[in-house]
Design a protein around this nucleic acid. Structure first.
Lengths: 334, 334
DNA sequence: AGAATCCGCTAATACGAATTATTAGTGGGT
DNA sequence: ACCCACTAATAATTCGTATTAGCGGATTCT
């Protein structure tokens, strides 16, 4: 097995010292340090010819940084079930990482403990990267607290509640987006709305409910809540007498539409339907729902941007990106 | 920024040497090395109390490996057009990487030179990983030769011809799968077959043609070849008088089906249709083609398995995985 | 009796790159 | 002849962990 090339090897080939190779590599041109153009070129040529690349572990150990950004996901990234969910984020992350000249390390090695992955296992490689981006519908609170306590630079994609301290994140502004949709319904004359969803669990879910309630209260509109998993959902929604239904989860709306068609409920003539963001669970539908788009790609990009900023100057950035509203065809006046 | 705890710190607190801490941590109980139970417990207690975790960078440096596997693709992975092609491979790769405890480094930053990516560009990061998996419809011969010459551990997903030496790969057995399909057609009474495809180019394509010809010759069945890109493909195929058409590329078969429907050719009543593997170009079709499935996910898994084996013991593994035959509804007797 | 082995632990060193301190050489000014 | 400023490079050290060689005394084997 061929030993990995080291700066020492390059130095030998170029007839200089390891120090010189390091200096050339890091493009140091301070007044402190001088390398003649010829020597520099000679070293660079050997490096080019051999395709030498610095060992990230050694570099990290010596310098303290890597130009490697870790990406941690709580579920496997690629499998089809979650691919649709992660994909847009990854596109954004990848784009921005390329721009800032960082490589991406997918922490696929994190073993699944119980049902999900955990960041800190026996030998977590999190510290191999300069910092990392956290991705997942929900994030383990203990992991977050540990990251904060250990002062590991990271940015969460998706807003997170405090976990032993403020969590750096870039999220989507579900509160504002949901409020805007409620306001639109109100402008169209709706006086009674039904919220179909749990309103609890992950922050993203809670935010939708928060926005809904705030808007409803502010506008003096009547509202009721219905759990999406209850049997006879169609009848339950019908019984509320609401003119518009707000679905926390698009997948539930898709199922509902099917039931409505079978049950003789016309959408949007009899009932308007609004979905609060694109589906997290993949569903196929032809319905052009009124709702909003989660700026997933932008979130990915921004997370990397913020992470590099954190690495440079520290801090705990918290940002919410606006969601684009979708006109759709399922919300009409009454 | 608080300095991290080191083994030295732990050693001081426990009143032992750094070596002892390391030995306790790694649970070494060889005959080579002995630690008394009391000392061990004392060290473990300090570790537990402080929440010490070894620095992965230092650990990797000492161990000499990164546990990072590179994944090189000749086209961008994420964009939707190629996503369907790469996805199943990546699923397998990720699965297995997780099992063997390795992280994945996507060489997405490899710049595109001309039309395609090249492995060895200005600042190739290939050497950053312990080894890498090559993915792509076709792979550059020069790149392969370079990898072999430089003794960089790698495994290609897909069989490759020698390139200045044998190439380690895990491929799909297109020869056997194609032969099996020809044999099935023969058993069903077909005495004249037409091969629609170029039969040349990438190894995967050549293998299909090889299998086809070998089977046809062995069985004494007549056969002709038709280029898939010629105008009037439908008539050309018809003119051959063949009872069954073997399509190298499923996408061509889909187009052909459309033309057949319009031209009044009934499939499979008038002509049986067989496709040699799932589509590389994404096509949507409802036709249940007779053909075979490429074990993409398995190939991805196996590639990582073989790569870890190469890393441990060297060698140049070459494996072909069997394709699962699809009964389908487009191949009947005559 | 002398050699070999065991015991529990530590000092020394390796790993690869970055940084520091230092050296050798050169030319100019007084 | 001497000191100084400057150039171009290197030797030595650092980072935190893992490994190897070895310590001196006691026990066991031959």
């Amino acid at each position: 097995m061929a030993r990995r090339l080291t700066q020492q090897d390059i130095a030998r080939m170029a007839g200089v010292s390891q120090t010189t190779v390091s200096l050339v590599l890091n493009n140091r041109a301070d007044s402190e340090v001088r390398i003649s153009p010829e020597t520099r070129q000679r070293v660079l040529r050997v490096i080019r010819e051999t395709g030498y690349i610095a060992d990230p572990a050694a570099r990290r150990l010596a310098e303290g940084r890597n130009r490697i950004l870790g990406v941690f996901t709580y579920e496997a990234v690629f499998p089809a079930t979650s691919a649709d969910f992660y994909h847009p984020f990854l596109v954004g992350i990848e784009e921005c990482a390329e721009e800032v000249g960082c490589d991406l390390l997918l922490f696929t090695s994190a073993r699944v403990t119980g049902q999900r992955r955990r960041i800190f296992n026996e030998d977590s490689r999190v510290r191999l990267a300069d910092g990392c981006v956290l991705l997942g519908r929900t994030v383990d609170r203990d992991d977050l607290a540990r990251l904060i306590a250990d002062q590991i630079p990271f940015v969460s994609v998706g807003r997170r509640d405090d976990a032993g301290g403020p969590v750096p994140y870039v999220g989507a502004d579900y509160v504002a987006a949901t409020r805007a949709l409620v306001e639109r319904a109100a402008r169209l004359g709706h006086r009674r709305l039904v919220y179909v969803g749990t309103g609890e669990g992950a922050e993203s879910t809670a935010d939708r409910f928060t926005g809904f309630q705030a808007a409803v209260t502010g506008l003096g509109v009547e509202s009721v809540q219905v759990r999406p998993d209850r049997p006879g959902l169609l009848e339950a929604v019908r019984a509320t007498g609401a003119g518009a239904a707000f679905f926390e989860e698009q997948a539930d709306a898709v199922v509902f539409m099917q039931a409505a068609a079978e049950g003789g409920l016309a959408v949007p003539e009899d009932l308007s339907v609004v979905t609060l963001g694109s589906a997290t669970r993949p569903v196929r539908t032809d319905t052009d729902f009124a709702g909003f788009l989660i700026p997933r790609r932008e979130m990915g990009r921004r997370a990397v941007e913020l992470l590099t900023k954190v690495l440079e100057t520290g801090g705990t950035p918290q940002e919410l990106l606006p969601c684009e509203l979708i006109e759709g065809s399922t919300l009409i006046g009454r």
